[in-house]
Each structure stands twice: as C-alpha cells, then as structure tokens.
Design a binder for these strands. Sequence first.
DNA 1: ATAAAAATTTAGATGAATCTAAAAAATAAA
DNA 2: TTTATTTTTTAGATTCATCTAAATTTTTAT
Lengths: 217, 217
Amino acid sequence: MLTYTEENYLKAIYHLSGEDQREVSTNAIAEALLTKPASVTDMLRKLADKSLVHYVKYQGVSLTRKGRKEALLVVRKHRLWEVFLVDKLKFNWDEVHEMAEQLEHIQSTILIDRLDAFLDYPSFDPHGDPIPDQKGDLKIRKKFLLSDVPVAFSGKVIALADTSPVFLQYLDRLAICPGCAIQVTDKIEFDGSLELLLNAKKKIVISNEVAKNLYVH
Amino acid sequence: MLTYTEENYLKAIYHLSGEDQREVSTNAIAEALLTKPASVTDMLRKLADKSLVHYVKYQGVSLTRKGRKEALLVVRKHRLWEVFLVDKLKFNWDEVHEMAEQLEHIQSTILIDRLDAFLDYPSFDPHGDPIPDQKGDLKIRKKFLLSDVPVAFSGKVIALADTSPVFLQYLDRLAICPGCAIQVTDKIEFDGSLELLLNAKKKIVISNEVAKNLYVH
DNA sequence: ATAAAAATTTAGATGAATCTAAAAAATAAA
DNA sequence: TTTATTTTTTAGATTCATCTAAATTTTTAT
Ligand SMILES: [Mn+2]
Ligand SMILES: [Mn+2]
Ligand SMILES: [Mn+2]
Ligand SMILES: [Mn+2]
C-alpha cells in the first residue's frame, strides 16, 4: 500500500516526465508539489527503496514499471472522479481539480471500477485527457501543439497543456473545448497569433500563448 | 481545519456519547478507534486546546457545541456517501462502511452539498440513520428497542444498533430492513425471542439478541 | 478504611513528512 | 581550465500520530 504522499509524488513524476518518460529533476518535483528540494530528496530515497523509481543521486529520477503503473492508477482515479464531478454533480471543468486531488487517494479498487461503470466507461476526462484502464494501461494518441501546426490545418482539439482555472475559463469564453473542430485560416508572422474557424462556423483569433497550450489532431 | 484523525476522534466521541451526550471514557475511545489509551489522552488534550471537547483529566470527555457540530458534519458526509454507494453504485448495505470511512474526510462543503442534491436530499442513510443538514443539525426521532416493546406492538423498523456486515447480512436473509412494517405477534418468556409478522404477510421468529439491535417506532 | 484492581495519564521513543541551513556535486561562465 | 552559479544532498529540527512502560488517580472489593 502507498501513502497519500507517495501517491502524489509518483503522479507528479509521471506528469513531469512527459510522453517519452525522460528523467525528472529534484527541483522540478519540489516546484510541482509546493515543497522543498530537501524533502523531495528524502522521498526519492524512500520510493527507490520500494522499487517505485530509478534514482541515482544527482542524476534525476524516473519511474520503474511498477511505479509507472501505480502512478497511472492514481491518474485513473483522478480522471474518473473528474468525470463524476462534471457529468453527475454538474461542476464546471475549471472547478474540479482540487476535489479530484483528494478523491484520487480513496483506496478501493472495487469502488473505482463501479464508478467507471456508473459513468459508462468514459475514455476521456472533462479536459480531454485519456483515462487509464484497470491495469494502468493508457492508449496514447498522437497529438500536436496548435502553435506548431501549419496554416490550413484542419482537425480537432483533443487535450490541453495547461488546465489551470484561468485558462479553462478563458477557453469557455472562446467556446473552445476538447472535441471542437478547428481550422487554421491564418497565422500572423509577427506574434504567432492564429485566426481560426471554430466548429466550421465561428471565426476567432487566439494568441500564440493560447495556441501553445492546445493539443490538436 | 481539522485533520483526518481529529475528525475520526470527534465522530467516535459523538457516537459513544449516545442520545443524551453523556461523558465518554478514554478506554472506550481507544477501543472504538483500535488505538491505545495513551494515544487517546494525547489527542484529547489537543482537541481541548482547540475547544472541540470539554476535558478534565481522569473525568472523561464530552463534545463542545463546536465539536458536536464538526462531528455531525463528518456524520453527514459519511451517510451521504453511503447513500451514493448504495443507490448509485449498487453496493449492498453491508459493503459500504469502509469506503464511507475514507470518503467522509473529503474536504469540500460545495461537493457534499452537490452530492446531497444529486441524491435528491435523502433524509436517511441505507441503515436507517438520519442525515444531518448543512448546519450540522439532526432531527431526532423517538425510537424503541424491539426487545423492549410489548406483545401486539405494531410499527416500523427505523434504525439498527449494530451495523456490522454479519448482522446486516443476517437481516437480508430475514428480509428485514429499515422501513419494514413489524407486528409483534408473540414473545417467548424463556429466551425473549419474538414472533413477528413482517410487512403484514410474512411470519418470522427472531432471537432476543436480534431484537436488541433493532429500533422501531 | 485500607488494600487491590482498573482506568488514566506521563515519560520517553519511533516513523512519516516536512523544514532551514550548510555542505557537496554538477553545470555554466569567464 | 579555473571560477562562479545552480542544483542537489546531508545534517539536524519540528510536528503529528502513534507506541510501550512506568507512574498516578480513581474505583471497587475486602
Ligand atoms: Mn492528490
Ligand atoms: Mn483532468
Ligand atoms: Mn474515517
Ligand atoms: Mn450508515
């Protein structure tokens, strides 16, 4: 069994190491968890003792197969609870993170599987992120940053790089959400801002900063 | 804000002090929380410092108005989650206690109020226990132990003194649950066992031990 | 009323998770 | 390639919740 804190560390390392599961630095973890580097070092030793991470002093850390699985089971719980909060309790997608942050630590496999069934086996959370299965397996979709895509590109928003409330609220105002159809009608050289056709009917302009936080396919 | 452990202590003291909110002993709390008397003493001093309990060394403990309110808010969360688990996730009433024991510590007033609405403002949990309101107020119903009631008594089961899985499973077998109509058709002098008419159609016999764990009105 | 038993509290330790301050190692700059 | 800067780790404390063993207080029994 993992402690509350160990689960949070594993999840943070998982998120920080990205698609390619690269090594994560002590400072990066400290910043993500609002803690100090010294505390992170202690915990890394503890996680290494439990074979949850590969850790060599001064050389960063990465998840073992076991650690990655545990991390993904926490991610599964987090995202399923988010779906519950938005679909059933009618919260807005920018309000659910804090609550899911606690709910993800409820320990009961049967509970989370029943919740999964109750929600009708969703594949994605309200922010467009995929939900791992019972075994902690995740199917990865190819995705591109909207800021890297060429003019005339046509596709759908499938995920967000930033999921902070301010960004989510701004997306609400722009009427952008995962699933939206997007066509890049123009790209401004000067500042990288984009002119888009949203859902084949609405014309909008977004800054490069926004485009860098939207994944499309 | 209360810690996870403080919430558990307050709830235990609330349950142990009963209807009339009598003083609770250190040993009783230790037994209820599967901990040692020495640990309880430490915590009582801490709770007293926070004005959550009235505590005089060697003389037992009782909840202050503030402590009672906090305890009832935990009870509210516990019972609402139990309703969710049984009504929505289709768990049996004997399976939900452990999970609710964790869920009751999720900290978000708005979450629990939304859950309340989602469940259609239930008044009782799956075991027949009343659910306190947002302010931590509870309406108490008069109730009698089935074992104390005279022959020919007619009424309904409204709560259980014991809610352990074994007892709940036995009640399932007898088809007794909160809300059931009960008529006492005979009482055996020898061992206090009762002959009942259940829901005006089924005749059953229960031991005095069972009758002592059923509340009726 | 005194002695024995039970309940409760204190003293001192432990493990988990955190911190600050100082030392050591790795990286970047001159 | 030295030196300076940044990153990371160690050393030593702190807080929370727990424990065991010993000392107190209260309660019960003789
Ligand atoms: Mn969390
Ligand atoms: Mn999410
Ligand atoms: Mn609990
Ligand atoms: Mn209950």
